[in-house]
Design a binder for these strands. Structure first.
Length: 539
DNA sequence: CAGTGAGCGAGCTTCCGCTTGACTT
């Protein structure tokens, strides 16, 4: 018998089927050990850290030890990334007490071939990856646990907290709110002309911003006496590419925008869909899709909508900090609906449609730009107005997934055509303040800045709520009074922590640790001394 | 002797990231 260990129990079940009766396949359920919740858990002088078993994990380790004793070999197959390597490291330390034959294996796809390949190529733990996890973990601990108490003192409120992720996130929210508060709405006006051609009505606009409605009115009145004709018609083809398939951040953002689900709800539901076998792993930052599966979905598109709707599987460039362990989020099979309760079905439907859309043809558009000439006895020169048309020539992927495209239809027009004036009008517009973040747009913004990971996006928002920093009303995030004060205080006292680039600076150094070029303790010292004051570190 | 109240001291919060049940409310 052999033992094969992964992180997720759902994966374990699937892999058990592949490997058969010769294998015990077991799951760690994430991390085994972590710094203690209480106390710093790190010696500031030596950076020696105290790792303790997470609740329930002591028992789990005992079980894995019992099995390890019985088997000829143990394969540790936690996720192929920094955190997974750390799990493997602690696992091996415990299990090698009862079995010396332990190997580290990795896979990037849950297929029988990929799993068997991982066993063939099984080797050693990459200690540099483990070190980079130590550096990441300990830096987060030092920042969080040394700065939070300063907030308790300063604001006499022990519920407050600071951290590498939550504090810059809060800064985004507070700064946006200040922009909105300081925004001064300006009204401006366009002169609009309603015209008719062969009984069809359309409008053209004079492309000049008037600050004062009275100025605009003068022109409008002069145009009342004008003669209108088509000066030129310009037609251009355009296309709208299909959306990428879902990754965690996009799914949470879309479910928030289109279904009104808070990220936490989407997280829970997608986990359930995953456990029931309906979708792939729900915490991922990779757009990759299994080629064979993509073909199956394309066959589905061909059958349902015809060949002309079939697009292709695109290769998307991954962002820099992608850890490559998983595919995109997609249905496991091309089944359009599931016989489950409402909420699950709605979310599944969104994922199914998005997956299809990502493999479908572009939307073909026709953009028309019509210039209308107005000649009026009141003015020496003609005035030129613009009418814009947008027509969907081929609906492509929008057949299955909503697009933002709004058609603007114009009558059939050719240069020289005479037009009948219906009336002139003023169009009032206002400058728009930036909009508040929603839980979804905040997550997308954090992702763009490289702050946070797929498994934590929904908890970031939750933490900010729990600390009383934000309130969510009608899907939009509002910072509370204390949030403004805390951000100001942190900006003044811990500017590097509040720098949006901090995480990516840290990641660059962690990459060097992973390549074995830099000592992990040096990285911790460097950033800890830059972010925190010397007194705080007591060194 | 019982009840009251001042004064003192101890203990408590907190990070980010990986994964789900096993708990309590």
């Amino acid at each position: 018998m052999k033992l094969f260990i992964v992180e997720s129990p759902t994966k374990a079940k699937t892999i058990q089927k592949f490997l058969g009766k010769d294998f015990y396949v077991k799951a760690t359920l994430g991390h085994i050990k972590d710094l203690p919740e209480r106390g710093l858990g790190v010696d500031l002088k030596t950076l020696k850290a105290k790792y303790v078993y997470l609740r329930g994990k002591k028992k789990l380790i005992e079980e894995l030890k019992r099995l390890s004793k019985k088997v000829e070999i143990v394969y540790i197959c936690t996720d192929p990334d920094r955190e997974g390597e750390a799990i493997a490291y602690f696992l091996k330390k415990d299990l090698q007490k009862v079995n010396k034959n332990i190997k580290r294996a990795v896979f990037y796809e849950i297929t029988p071939a990929a799993i068997k390949e991982s066993i063939r190529n099984a080797g050693y733990i990459n200690i540099n990856l483990v070190y980079s996890q130590f550096a990441r973990r300990i830096l987060d601990r030092l920042i969080g646990y040394l700065i939070s108490p300063i907030l308790w003192k300063e604001f006499k409120n022990y519920r407050l907290s600071a951290g590498r992720v939550q504090s810059p996130a809060l800064r985004l929210i507070v700064e946006r709110e200040r922009e909105i508060q300081n925004f001064r709405v300006k009204k401006y006006y366009y002169v609009k002309v309603i015209l008719e051609k062969d009984g069809e009505i359309f409008h053209a606009i004079y492309d000049y911003r008037y600050e004062k409605p009275s100025d605009a009115k003068i022109i409008a009145e002069k145009l009342e006496k004008g003669f209108f004709s088509v000066y030129s018609v310009d037609i251009k083809e355009d296309k709208e590419y299909s959306p990428k398939p879902f990754i965690t951040s996009d799914l949470q953002a879309e479910a928030n925008a289109k279904l009104g689900f808070p990220p936490e709800k989407t997280q829970k539901l997608s986990q359930e869909l995953y456990e029931k076998g309906y979708i792939t792993y729900p915490r991922t930052d990779s757009y990759r899709m299994n080629e064979q599966k993509a073909k199956e979905f394309m066959n589905f598109i061909r059958r349902e909508f015809g060949e002309k709707y079939v697009g292709r599987l695109r290769n998307f460039r991954e962002k820099k900090n992608v850890q490559g362990a998983h595919e995109c989020i997609r249905p496991t099979k091309p089944i359009p609906t599931i016989p489950e309760r409402e909420e699950l079905r709605i979310l599944y439907d969104l994922i199914f449609r998005r997956t299809l859309a990502s493999l479908m043809k572009e939307i073909q558009l026709e953009r028309k730009k019509v210039i209308v000439e107005a000649i009026t006895p009141e003015l020496r020169r003609p005035i030129y107005l613009i009418a814009k048309g947008l027509k969907v020539v081929f609906d492509g992927w929008s057949r299955v997934y909503p697009s933002e495209i709004k058609e603007e239809l114009l009558p059939l027009l050719a240069a020289g055509d005479l037009l009948k004036l219906i009336k002139t009008d003023l169009e009032e517009r206002r400058t728009q303040p930036p909009s508040r973040y929603t839980e979804g747009t905040l997550i997308k913004t954090l992702e763009k800045l490289g702050i946070g990971r797929p498994s934590t996006y929904s908890t970031i928002v939750k933490t900010l709520k729990e600390r009383g920093y934000i309130k969510v009303k009608n899907k939009t995030i509002l910072p509370t009074h204390i949030a403004f004060e805390v951000v100001d205080f942190l900006m003044e006292n811990f500017p590097l922590l509040m720098d949006y680039k901090f995480t990516s600076l840290m990641e660059e150094k962690l990459d060097l640790v992973e390549e074995g070029k830099v000592d992990w303790k040096e990285v911790v010292y460097e950033f800890a001394s830059k972010v925190l004051s010397k007194e705080l570190l007591r060194i």
